[in-house]
Design a protein around this nucleic acid. Structure first.
Length: 555
RNA sequence: UGAGCUAUGGUGUAACGGUAGCACUACAGAUUUUGGUUCUGUCUGUCUAGGUUCGAAUCCUAGUAGCUCAACCA
């Protein structure tokens, strides 16, 4: 029975560290910068970090990397916390890099005293020019050999606010000829007279990412600091600071970030979509943000399952969004309540159904996948709506739906036969006249008739109305970022289709925010969290698999 | 054109010198009161060229391709 799941490369490293006795338990961290909303790519990192500490014993900190006051806001801190919680994870400590500003300042002093850091008066342009290029070594700054005393004094004055933004920086003194650009005397502190979302105006100098991240990991005794591939060149620096400062040796490991087909993942691009109104907001249901997916109706379970299935490795990847859709369908199939909703109504009159009879109540199960699920009542009637596309006057082969002279089952109800299509003067079909087979009632069918097709329907008299929003992929091409020109040229203009008046069975009157629905033969839907006030608004999470549509496409 | 990382079906991901497996997709069929679900089956793969070895996806060498690095962003 030991169906062992193979380990990813990070799990292998951890098991090695545990086996060798290097550690008894592990500490990881999820370190977002609070300058935007989390997306599905972050979910991969969250599942990895929290999953690892859960699996191997230990814990995960949530640490906000807030070293750049001009981009960061408390609003983002709150949304990030909400998203991590919603995904189902609990952090041990809620921390901020800004909590360590005093300590980081002390680390900087240590470096200066060791002759390993200096204040540089050069401008940003001058520093860039002296940096060299990947193929040519850089040049030493004229300020590189200042005395320790002078550096100490200048750095203290920087902190004291004596100098304007951009006038000086503190740099680590490493190697201007290093083949690794990040080792060419990187800037580690800059002057920014800016208000910080947590430390307010206490500081006017702020540490750079490289001088904050590794040390923060070290302060928290993070054993395995996991980040994405683009940080590989930073690792040498990460370790340099830890070595020179002689602090806890956290180690950095890098994995490939998630890319998904038919969307973009960079914060910059997502921001453009919001600012330029291609989408409504960060939590627009078409966005790959956690909040967008949540509003779309995705479940935390399905996102975790997805992150589990895509694996963790070091090679670049582009994952088919179809896998995400598979994951959410699989979960929703188990939990969604079945309901009938007609989007584009075609009236059916059952000519042999008694006029005087009140609403006959039929019974339908909430979820056939779940034997424990309840039933709901569905009123039947003489006049019904079916989906217009479920009727064809001249049907092609293998069309199992209604056509003149044809028979179908109305789900949970009776078998009907189409006798006549009524048209207006322009030749448009306005209604269908059908007859029903009284002894074919669901659950007590003695008619002996077998039909190929089963349609969803609602009774005209008892139908309630709702708005339904049908979402499709945001882009027309698999990888918008790799296409020629602006990625926005590839936006799918039809990513949102709104059905303002859909007809729903009355059970949906009591729809709840936390419930998921399967509109029979239509897809999975959930109540919109923003726009449902007096009226019902449903968002389509994902369609059902549709082999008929595929069949038709083939011609 | 310096340095680093990476190459396994259409897409992901395993195989740790010994039968190339799993999932998604696609296709075919069975079941079905959702053209859903479920079940069964099929197709497709080790970047190239050399080498080491009884044996190479795995080790070595050389190519090739993709990605990353020259922010006072993270």
């Amino acid at each position: 029975m030991s169906e062992e799941k193979s380990l990813n490369f990070i799990e292998e490293i951890i098991e090695e560290d545990l086996k060798s006795g290097k550690y008894n338990s592990i500490i990881t961290r999820f370190p977002p910068e609070p300058n935007g909303y989390l997306h599905i790519g972050h979910a991969k990192s969250i599942c990895l970090n929290f999953g690892l500490s859960k699996k191997y014993g230990g814990y995960t900190n949530l640490r906000f990397d807030d070293t750049n006051p001009v981009t960061e806001e408390t609003e983002y801190v709150e949304s990030i916390k909400e998203d991590v919680k919603w995904l189902g994870f609990e952090w041990k400590n809620e921390l901020f890099a800004s909590d360590y500003f005093e300590q980081l300042y002390a680390f900087a002093l240590t470096l200066i005293r060791k002759g390993l850091a200096y204040v540089d008066d050069s401008s940003a342009e001058e520093i860039a020019a002296m940096k060299g290029t990947p193929t040519e070594p850089g040049k030493d700054s004229p300020f590189r050999n200042r005395s320790i005393e002078e550096n100490l004094q200048l750095f203290e004055e920087m902190r004291a606010g004596k100098y304007p933004d951009g006038s000086r920086v503190l740099r680590a003194k490493i190697d201007m000829a290093s083949p690794n650009m990040h080792m060419r005397d990187p800037v580690i502190y800059r002057i920014k007279h800016a208000h910080h979302h947590r430390t307010a105006d206490k500081w006017c100098i702020y540490p750079m990412y490289d001088f904050a991240h590794g040390q923060s990991d070290s302060i928290e005794n993070v054993t395995h600091s996991i980040c994405t591939l683009e940080f590989i060149p930073h690792r040498e620096l990460y370790e340099w600071f830890i070595n020179k400062l002689e602090i806890f040796p956290s180690r950095q490991y890098e994995f490939a970030r998630l890319n998904l087909t038919y969307t973009v993942m960079s914060k910059r691009k997502l921001l453009q979509l919001v600012q330029e109104k291609y989408v409504e907001s960060w939590d627009d249901p078409r966005m790959p943000t956690i909040s967008g997916l949540r509003r779309r109706g995705y479940t935390p379970e399905s996102i975790r399952d997805f992150c589990d299935r895509i694996g963790v490795a070091k090679r670049e990847n582009l994952i088919d969004v179809g896998l995400l859709e598979f994951c959410v369908r699989e979960h929703l199939n188990k939990v969604a309540l079945r309901r009938m909703v007609v989007f584009d109504p075609l009236k059916v009159v059952i000519t042999n159904y008694p006029e005087t009879q009140g609403a006959e109540m039929l019974v339908g199960e909430d979820n056939p996948e779940d034997p424990a699920s309840a039933n709901r009542e569905i009123p039947f009637g003489k006049e019904l709506y079916i989906e217009r596309e479920d009727f064809m006057e001249n049907p092609p082969k293998k069309f199992f739906r209604l056509f003149p002279g044809g028979m179908v089952r109305l789900k949970h109800a009776y078998i009907i036969k189409c006798d006549e299509a009524i048209k207006d003067e322009a030749g448009n079909i306005t209604e269908l006249h059908c007859t029903y087979i009284p002894e074919s009632k669901s659950g007590s069918d003695t008619s002996g008739i077998n039909v190929k097709g089963t349609l969803h329907w609602v009774a005209v008299q008892n139908a309630i109305t709702a708005e339904v929003r049908l979402y499709d992929r945001l882009f027309q091409v698999e990888d918008p970022s790799s296409e020629e020109g602006d990625f926005k040229d590839y936006i799918n203009e039809n990513s949102l289709q709104t059905v303002t008046t859909a007809y729903a069975e009355p059970a949906l009157k009591n729809a709840k925010m936390n419930e998921r629905y399967q509109f029979l033969r239509k897809g999975y839907f959930t109540l919109d969290t923003k726009d449902t006030y007096a009226r019902l608004v449903f968002n389509r999470t994902v369609t059902l698999k549709d082999t008929w549509a595929k069949e038709q496409k083939k011609g």
